[in-house]
Amino acid sequence: MNIFRFAGDMTHLASVLVLLLKIHTIKSCAGISLKTQELYALVFATRYLDLFTDYISLYNTLMKLIFLGSSFSIVWYIRYHKIVRRSYDKDQDTFRHYFLVLPCLLLALLINEKFTFREVMWTFSLYLEAVAILPQLVLLQRTRNIDNLTGQYVFLLGAYRALYILNWIYRYFTEPHYVHWITWISGLVQTLLYADFFYYYFQSWKNNVKLELPA
C-alpha cells in the first residue's frame, strides 16, 4: 500500500459517500445517472468475485464490502425508493449503457492477462469502469445545471483514478515485475474521459461561478 493508492481509495470512498449522503438526506437523485450507477454496481460485482476466496487484508475486504454495498444501495434508492425515484430524470438519462457492456465483455475475452473466468471478469470490470461515467457525463451536458454535490461526486470519482495512476507509477518503480498494461491503459482512458469535466470544474471553481458544461 502506498500513499497514492490510499488517497485514491479514500477519494473513491468519499465519492460514493457524497452520493449516498445526497440521496439519503435530501431524498433526491436529480442530475444523477441511474445507468452509470448500474454500471458501477456491475463493475464491483465482477471485480470483487474473489471477495470470499482470496483474503488480502481486512482493509481490502472492508472496502470491497463498502463499495459493493454502497453501489447496490444507490441503484436500489434510485429505482425503488418511493421518494427518490420521483426525482430520477429517465427522459434525459437515455444513454444506451448496454452498448457499453457488450464491447467491454468482448474486449475482455480478447485482451486479458489470463484466460480464466475470474481474470476475464476482472478485466471486463476494468474496461467497464473506464466507460461507466459516460452516461453521467452525457446527462450533465444535457441538464446543464449541475448542483454542487453532483459536481463533487463526479470530480472525486475522476480524481480517485488519477491518484491510482500515480500509484501505478510508484509501484512500477518500486516493485520488480509489477507491470499491468491492461490496468494502466484502461485507467488512463478513464481519467482522460474526465479531462474536459475537470477543466470546466476548475474554471467554475476558479471564477467562483456555478459549474456549467457547454452544450
Binding site: I56, M63, Y164
Partner: peptide
C-alpha cells in the same frame, strides 16, 4: 509466479 497473480488493488 505471475500465473496466479492475485489483484491486490480495489
Amino acid at each position: 509466479t505471475v500465473d496466479d497473480y492475485i489483484h491486490d488493488e480495489l
